[in-house]
C-alpha cells in the first residue's frame, strides 16, 4: 500500500524523492509501474504523480532544441512531431510501442526511464542525438540517452533526481532522415526481438541497435565506414555485417542469440537501403 502524492512543481518532486529515497516511485503513464507493483516487483510506499506538475505535458520548440516534457504520452509525442519529417524515425518508434490504449497513457520519458533493453524509442532517440533532462535539488543536467542507460532497468539517475524532459536537437535545414525497423513475434504488444534505427544527415550516418545487448548499441565502426564511402548497396551490406559483430544478444523466449544476430544484420541492411531511397527522394 502506498501514499499517493500530486506534486505541483519539480522542486516538490525532488524534495519528496530526496526525503523518501528508494521508497518513492515516480508515476508518469503508469503502464509499466502499475504492472510491476501488481506483480510485487516494486513495493513503493510513496507514489508521485508527475502528471500534476504544470507544463510537463507540453512539447516546447526552442531555437536549438525540442523539449518533450516527461508527462507527454507516446500518442501526443507522435502527433506533435509528425509534421517534421526529420523526426519520422522517432514517430515510427513511438508508434511501435505496445498498443493504442498503452500509447494513450505511456510516456516517452517513461519508455526511456524503464531502461528496458528492448525499448523501441531508445535506438531512435540515440540516432537523433537526444538528451535526457534531469532535475535535481542542485538544478538541471543533460545526459545523452545512451549514457543515461547503464543496464537493464538501470540508469544514472541519483536519489532525489527526476527526468523532466527528453530533449531533441533541432535538425534545422539539415534535411536529415531516419528509418526505424523492428521485428517481434507479433506486430503489437510484444517487445521487440530486435530493433534498429538509422539516421543520415549530410555525410554522417548513425546506427543504433536495441534488444541485442544490456543497453542500446551504437555501431560506430559502420558509421565511420558510411561517412568515408557513402551509402550504397555494398556499404549497407558491410555495415550490416559490422552491426552483427557489434551485437551481444542473449537467448530468451523471444528468440535465440543466433536468430537475433541474423535479425540485426537483416534489419540494419534493410533500414539503410530504405534510408538511401528516402534521402534520394
Amino acid at each position: 500500500m502506498f501514499e499517493y502524492h500530486e506534486p505541483r512543481s519539480l522542486a516538490e518532486v525532488t524534495s519528496l524523492l530526496a526525503a523518501h529515497g528508494e521508497a518513492a516511485k515516480v508515476l508518469a503513464g503508469g503502464t509499466d509501474l502499475l504492472v510491476q507493483i501488481r506483480k510485487g516487483r516494486h513495493q513503493p510506499r510513496h507514489l508521485l504523480n508527475i502528471k500534476t506538475v504544470p507544463g510537463l505535458d507540453q512539447v516546447n520548440f526552442a531555437e536549438d532544441c525540442v523539449e518533450i516534457g516527461a508527462a507527454v504520452t507516446l500518442h501526443d509525442g507522435e502527433k506533435f512531431l509528425s509534421a517534421y519529417p526529420e523526426y519520422a524515425v522517432l514517430c515510427r518508434a513511438m508508434h511501435s510501442v505496445a498498443s493504442c490504449q498503452i500509447r494513450n497513457r505511456a510516456t516517452l520519458a517513461g519508455n526511456v526511464c524503464n531502461a528496458s533493453p528492448a525499448a523501441d524509442t531508445v535506438p531512435a532517440l540515440v540516432v537523433l542525438g537526444a538528451n535526457v533532462k534531469i532535475h535535481g535539488t542542485h538544478g538541471d543536467r543533460l545526459v545523452p540517452v545512451d549514457r543515461f542507460l547503464t543496464g537493464p532497468g538501470r540508469t544514472v539517475l541519483l536519489t532525489g533526481e527526476v527526468v523532466s524532459a527528453i530533449v531533441l536537437p533541432r535538425m534545422n535545414g539539415g534535411g536529415g532522415r531516419g528509418v526505424f525497423l523492428r521485428k517481434a513475434r507479433r506486430p503489437s504488444l510484444d517487445l521487440a526481438t530486435a530493433n534498429v534505427a538509422v539516421y543520415a544527415a549530410g555525410e554522417s550516418c548513425r546506427i543504433a541497435l536495441g534488444a541485442v545487448g544490456p543497453t542500446v548499441i551504437r555501431v560506430r565502426e559502420a558509421e565511420r565506414l558510411l561517412a568515408r564511402q557513402g551509402l550504397t548497396a555494398a556499404t549497407a551490406a558491410e555495415a550490416a555485417r559490422l552491426a552483427r559483430s557489434a551485437a551481444k544478444p542473449i537467448t530468451d523466449v523471444r528468440g535465440s542469440d543466433e536468430y537475433r544476430l541474423d535479425l540485426v544484420s537483416a534489419l540494419t541492411e534493410q533500414a539503410l537501403l530504405t534510408l538511401a531511397m528516402e534521402v534520394r527522394a
Binding site: Y4, L27, G30, T31, L34, V35, L47, N49, C100, Q101, I102, N104, R105
Partner: peptide, 8 residues
Amino acid sequence: PVNSCLVL
C-alpha cells in the same frame, strides 16, 4: 481508449 486496469 485506455486500459482501465492501468489507471489509478
